[in-house]
Amino acid sequence: MANFIGALPGAASQGLIWGIMAIGVYITYKILDVADLTVDGSFCTGGAVFVMLFGAGVPVPVALLAAFGAGLAAGLATGLLHTFCGIPAILSGILTQLGLWSVNLAVMGMKANVSINVNDTANLNKLWVSLRFVTSVGDGSMPFYRHPIVVVGVFTLVVIAVLYWFFGTELGSALRATGANGNMARAQGINTDVTKVLGLMLSNGLVALSGALLSQYQSFADASMGRGAIVIGLAAVIIGEVIFSKIFRNFALNLLAVSFGAIIYYMVIQAVISLSNINTNYLKLISAVIVAIFLTVPYWKGKYLSKPVKKGGLPNA
């Protein structure tokens, strides 16, 4: 138990990082209404690009931006496979994800694992987030605002603010309309191919950014770090919805709920691990079960607990 509590700040930090990835998933799954499996690949792409660039002496913000750009490119690939080549969205995502496996390895110089040298203090201090900062802030050797929760929290708020603005613009509205009703969108002159590609790019850009933050936090990138990312993203989206949909109505708050969902999910997983001494090989199975449960709850609630709806329209309609 003490173990678990001690791990809380770290768990919250990592949950927040995943939250940014989950916000990316929210854009495709909830707004565009496509299930995009590129995520498992593009998450690692972000991490790989960041670690390699940082290792080559590129400043953190530039490396983060490059990781975001790499995510945009991954989304572009999936988007073009889907719209230009006419391949179903799910399959397009799987194809890109598969291809990215090789791309990611190539980016990392054909190694499965590349780390950031954090034993070099000068190097470590250049980073914006790191697992080590959790203890440094804890023992007072670093100011509180270097705590990963604060840094990633600010990141998250900026991302939410930008998305809130974007989805209120003409272009953002066109994207929402595309997901809500493609027929209607086209009848209103919206090129739904373009909006879909844009949405996939934006989503994967955020996913890659999240991957870059995670590899920075844990000080390494790993070829398989993105495995199961889509499930984590969906879990966060759904947990956020199940728990907060009654209180949060506004779009920005919905995005915040996704971020909270990721934190909750990560904490649940941590709790399961530390309280039950379970073999971590079962982690993926536990994740799958947790997500399945959270997907089932709203479905059953709708099916068995909803009041019967009156047939027919309003009298004056």
Binding site: G168, T169, E170, S173, A174, R176, A180, N181, G189, I190
Partner: peptide, 30 residues
């Protein structure tokens, strides 16, 4: 069901229609 976006507001639907045939920019949607 086909002519409107159910998950969007009445005014948002109208704003989308007001921009029919025009480029969608980064100006405010409504």
């Amino acid at each position: 069901m086909m002519g409107t976006a159910a998950t969007m507001q009445i005014d948002e639907n109208l704003a989308l229609a007001m921009r029919r045939g025009k480029a969608r920019t980064l100006r405010t949607g409504i």
